[in-house]
């Protein structure tokens, strides 16, 4: 009941951390740009060097914003899934969204070799990849929603989502087996994930989809809280379970689907951030958790992206590996230190 004031300071600290991470992310990269220049770029000041301005505005800013959107979106959809499925192992991809996206991407990249002629998509670039993977994830999500219409048991829905994941993973394996090395490499590069390929236009579209997802999640806060007692209790307290379930599934589909389409299947963030947030805030109230996972997700993703671009070196590590390498020890450490999982 006193929750409104209790969390003010932690949230303030979180936002300051987010800002610091943002500045750090912008200022570090393969080309070294002095911090002063970075600040002038952020606050619209004059820059001595035109190429620095170009790098910051057209490369680093979009990348940092993508990282923020990807991190917060995946974290939020992970939280939604964990509560809906009453399962601490659930993540944004339990409904088969990422496997659908993988299937779309795999068909586009590797399908041509297997079904030469039938699947001649033409040029494979970032845009066609985004379209293919979003179509894939949308298709799987559609099937899951249709199944959800007929199935009342949420746990059965979880299993069905996992089964779809297995089916698509198997098809991808078959495709990879028959494809040539070059195509396989291209697919694997896609599956590493990347937050650096978005233009301002794509970023705008992603932001709009994200906003819809966040608004739906905010609407779902009250039913999510009642789901902490279980579905029967939620229903007995007047929650329209069917409607709430759709809102939650659609929000997750939009968030995770759009992100996967643009940034590839980024693992770990969606599973780990809700746990991190619960441990640190020591609460399961979604009024606190929803905003908190958004900020935590963004922070973690910014940090991971900063590490992935290996400051001062020209190489970039796959972001998908970094999220796990950085994130997993943090979750393990928190669980060991607190000795109790909060769920």
């Amino acid at each position: 009941m006193e929750s409104n004031t209790k969390y003010r300071i932690p949230f303030l600290l979180l936002f300051i951390t987010l800002l610091l991470c943002f500045v750090m992310n912008i200022s570090l990269g393969s080309v070294s740009i002095p911090l002063k220049e970075t600040f002038s770029a952020i606050f619209g000041g004059e820059l001595s060097n035109d190429s620095s301005k170009y790098i910051i505005w057209n490369y680093r800013f979009p990348k940092a914003f993508t990282a923020i959107l990807v991190g917060s979106g995946l974290a939020l959809s992970g939280l939604l899934m964990q509560t809906l499925f009453r399962n601490p192992l659930a993540g944004p991809f339990v409904l088969g969204i990422s496997s659908g996206a993988s299937l779309g991407a795999a068909l586009l990249i590797m399908g041509a070799t297997l079904f030469s002629g039938i699947f001649s998509f033409g040029i494979i670039n970032d845009i066609s990849l985004a379209i293919a993977s979003s179509m894939g994830s949308f298709l799987v999500l559609l099937i899951v929603v249709v199944v959800a219409l007929r199935i009342k048991d949420t746990m059965a829905l979880l299993i069905i989502g996992l089964m779809f994941g297995s089916i698509t993973a198997a098809i991808v394996s078959v495709l990879s087996y028959f494809t040539d090395a070059e195509k396989l490499q291209q697919y694997i590069y896609w599956s590493f994930g990347s937050v650096g390929n978005l233009s301002w236009h794509q970023l705008l579209l992603l932001t709009i989809i994200m906003l819809i997802g966040v608004v739906l999640s905010i609407i779902a806060i009250k039913p999510l809280n009642s789901l902490l007692l279980g579905e029967n209790y939620a229903r007995s307290m007047g929650v329209n379970l069917k409607k709430s379930r759709y809102i939650i599934i659609i929000a997750t589909g939009l968030l995770a689907g759009a992100i996967t389409a643009y940034a590839g299947p980024i693992a770990f963030i969606g599973l780990a951030v809700p746990h991190l947030t619960r441990q640190i805030f020591n609460t399961t109230d979604h009024k606190v958790l929803v905003p908190a996972v958004l900020v935590y997700g963004a922070i973690l993703m910014l940090i991971c992206d900063t590490i992935a671009q290996l400051p001062t070196s020209a190489n970039v590590l796959p972001i998908n590996a970094i999220t796990s390498i950085v994130g997993a020890p943090v979750v393990i450490w928190l669980l060991v230190r607190k000795k109790k999982m909060i769920f």
């Binding site: 009941m1 009453r86 905010i218 609407i219 806060i221 009250k222 809280n225 009642s226 789901l227 902490l228 007692l229 279980g230 307290m237 007047g238 929650v239 619960r278 020591n282 609460t283 399961t284 109230d285 009024k287 909060i342 769920f343």
Partner: peptide, 24 residues
């Protein structure tokens, strides 16, 4: 209960859900 991490007060407060506004 799905989540035993609620405080007693929070859990009892959930009983007020039928009467609270859209965000509880």
């Amino acid at each position: 209960l799905v989540s035993k991490n609620l405080t007693v007060q929070e859990l009892i407060a959930l009983g007020r859900q039928p009467y609270t506004n859209w965000i509880g």
